[in-house]
């Protein structure tokens, strides 16, 4: 299969000259080992240097290269041309985020949400360096490990229709990150964070579509984190009814 080519449609947007995004088609040599990210790099190096996209690690670790591939949120470095060939492929910037330029989106809201859930260990009592580290058993670690695997790629927000309808929703990755800390045996900040969980834009903004967990490249399963919090939140509410502060 030498000399075969593949067509890639890319949704382009150049803020200094365009009022709205438009589709541009690129034809490049097909190589079955080529990832979507490599295809973009080929286009940028050989065909059109004006194309913009984000990337860094090329190995599904940094979380920079999220994009819509035929309408599905994926990491460009973890998707391969061979799974689409000989069909034309459509690349678009991650859904539900404003487009900064071409495949680059504005992620500020996502980052703000990650920061908003107090993503650090709040110990019951502060220890000095001399007192040593906060010890944890492998079993205690297993309770939150899955939720700590997030690479902040934002694919889950692009998959979430609730976030699309209302960006106030705290959203999958941030709530999974919240679970990561609340489930950590070294942390004593659960009560503080439950206020975020219980809020209207917290877990109750979720209607359990479940697509976030499906698209997550790291098996974080944010939908599970949220459903578990709904149970917690309901318990909190019931207890609160009988025990006014």
């Amino acid at each position: 299969m030498t000399n075969s080519t593949i067509d890639i449609d890319i949704l382009r947007y150049r803020p200094e000259q365009d009022n709205a995004p438009f589709v541009q088609t690129y034809r490049i040599p097909y190589d079955e080992e080529m990832s979507m990210l490599e295809a973009l790099q080929y286009i940028k190096d050989e065909v059109d240097g004006t194309l913009s996209f984000r990337w860094s690690c090329r190995m599904a670790i940094c979380g920079s290269c999220g994009m819509m591939i035929d309408g599905v949120p994926k990491l460009g470095c973890k998707a391969f041309l061979r799974d689409y060939y000989p069909n034309k492929i459509k690349l678009e910037p991650l859904a539900n985020f404003p487009i900064e330029r071409d495949l680059v989106v504005v992620m500020d809201d996502f980052i703000t949400k990650l920061e908003s859930i107090k993503p650090y260990i709040i110990p019951a009592e502060e220890k000095s360096l001399e007192q040593g580290e906060y010890i944890q058993t492998p079993e205690q670690m297993a309770k939150y490990k899955q939720f700590s695997m997030c690479i902040n790629c934002g694919l889950c927000y692009a998959a979430c229709p609730q976030y699309a309808l209302n960006t106030e929703f705290t959203g999958p990755a941030a709530l999974a990150l919240l679970a990561r800390y609340n489930r950590d045996s070294r942390d004593a900040g659960s009560a503080e964070r439950m206020a975020i969980v219980n809020a209207e834009e917290g877990v109750w903004g979720c209607t359990f579509v479940g697509y976030c967990s499906k698209v997550c490249p790291k098996g974080v399963d944010p939908a599970a984190a949220i459903q578990l919090f709904k149970v917690e939140s309901a318990k909190d509410y019931l207890i609160g009814m009988f025990k006014p502060e």
Binding site: A20, P21, P98, I99, V106, P161
Partner: peptide, 14 residues
């Protein structure tokens, strides 16, 4: 030159 573009959610998204 920034001018972030907000896409509309189509009514038939589902």
């Amino acid at each position: 030159k920034r001018k972030p573009y907000q896409r509309e959610l189509p009514v038939d998204w589902w």
